Structures are given as structure tokens and as C-alpha cells.
Amino acid sequence: MIALALPAQDGGGFTPPGIEDLHLPAILPWGAADGFSKQMLLVILSAVLLAAFFLAAARRGAMVPGKLQFVGEMAYGFVRNSIGKDIIGGRDFMKYVPLLFSLFFFILVNNIYGAIPLLQLPTFSHVGGAYVLAAIVYLTWIGIGVKKHGLRYFKLATVPSGVPWYILPIVVPIEIISNFLVRPVTHSLRLFATMLAGHLIVMLAGSGIEFLVTQENVLLKGASLLVLAGAIAMYMLEALIMVLQAYVFTLLTAIYIEGALHADAH
């Protein structure tokens, strides 16, 4: 980890890491833009790794699967059954499994980067990537709703059935804001904020340990062991959250698709 526990100008103070410390210098800078960054490199690497793994797992397609094929089938079956089939339903879910499968493992790998030494950067701790994925999902479920119900979908999505007419002027604006404005924003920011916060906490603990170890006071040096124990616990918690956030993002995608398909039944 980059040394972040720097003494302040007044002598001996602690300078904690900030958000700017996650924005590393560009690997290949060009013009006035940031250039090709570590985040971009990791995103490309994740696509290559996922493609290589699942192509290798599906290459033989044996009736009695080997270890690699078994792991690939288990991974596919988890998304197919636990997210696609359970949420969208047995009749409609299969055509959306490729999207859900790709989202889950793409987000998972890019999150897990933050727990791997030397890489140590969950790419969705930068909000741009989370916005792009949420925009893709947003356009997808709206497109599904319009394809299934026509323009009537927008009425189905914003005018709840069974609500008295005199309450509709209050309910309809709330539904419009909730479904078409708040939903995509929260979908992206939930992923971004948890990745950013978790990584900053681990960085803070690491820089705190570095700062305490460099102090002359023996008690402060000893306190670094307590911070280390806390840092390990936070590291494990962050790793768990990385997996959970991939699951939550994909689960919400399935819920939005199901809502668009069956808007007339809600």
C-alpha cells in the first residue's frame, strides 16, 4: 500500500488518506484527459479472465464434468436458478440469464480486485463504472416493459391499480420519481458507495498502522497491533461486501426486469 501516513507540517501529525488517493496517475496519459488508467486496465483484464475461464470450463462439455467444468456449471447454475428463475419466473427467465450472469461475475471480479495485494483497487470505487452498468440495466428494463406492453407500460409503472382517483395526483409523481429517477441512481450509488467506503476504511487502517509504528512512544507502537487486528477484520468484511454487492446489483436487475414483464399484474 502506498505510504499515506505522512507527518503534517507542524510536526508529527497524522494525514489520513482521502478519495483522491484512489485516483492513481494514468498509465498512459494523453492530452488534457486522465488517459488510460489502472482502473481501465483492470476492467479489460476482468473481461479477459472471465472469458478465458468460462470458455475453458465449457470447452469439453462432458457428461461427467471435470473440476473446471463443474465449477463453471455451478457458477452458471447459481445465477440461473437463484436469481433468474426464482425472481423472474420459470416461463420468462431464460432469455435474461446471459445478462444476469455477465453482470454478476463482471461486478464480482472487479470488486474482488480490492482484496488482492498489489492490485488493491475495486474498480467500482470510481463512480463512472457503476453509472454505466446502472444505465445499461435502466435502458434494458424500460425497453423490456415497452416491448411487452407498448407505451401503456409507463402508465402501468406509474399509476398503481386500486388507488382512488383523488389520491393519484399525489401518488403518480412519487411513482415517476421513484421508478424512473431514484431507482437508477440508487442502483449505481449503492455499488459505488460501498466499494469506496470499504476501501477507504482499509486504507485508513493501513496508514494508521504505518503512522503508529513510526512513533517513538512504545504504547503507540503497541497500539498498532490492535489496529492491525481491526484492519484484518475490516479486510474480511470488505471481501464479504464485495461478493454481496455483486449479488445485490444482479438481484435488483432481476427484480426490475420482472417488474417490467409483469407490470400489468402489480
Results as ranks from 00 to 15, higher is better:
L220W: 14
T194W: 11
M234T: 08
A223P: 03
A193G: 05
G222Y: 03
L240Q: 10
A246P: 10
L212K: 01
M236A: 14
I255C: 02
Y256W: 04
T253F: 03
G198N: 04
V243R: 07
Q245Y: 15
A223F: 14
E238D: 12
L196H: 08
Y256V: 02
A229S: 10
L226P: 00
A254R: 00
E238C: 02
L237F: 10
S178Y: 07
L226W: 01
A193W: 07
L225E: 05
L244I: 14
I209C: 07
G206S: 12
V182Q: 02
I209M: 15
A229W: 03
I209Q: 01
I241P: 01
F249N: 01
L219N: 10
Y235N: 06
A193S: 12
I232T: 07
I241F: 11
A239I: 04
S207L: 07
L244V: 09
E216D: 14
A223Y: 06
E238L: 15
G230M: 12
V185G: 01
T186R: 11
G198T: 01
Y256L: 06
L196P: 00
A231S: 15
I255D: 03
M242Q: 15
L228G: 11
A254G: 03
F211R: 01
P173A: 14
E175F: 04
I201T: 15
F249I: 03
M242G: 11
F192N: 07
R183P: 00
M234N: 09
L228C: 00
H187D: 09
F211D: 05
A254H: 01
A254W: 00
E175L: 07
M242T: 04
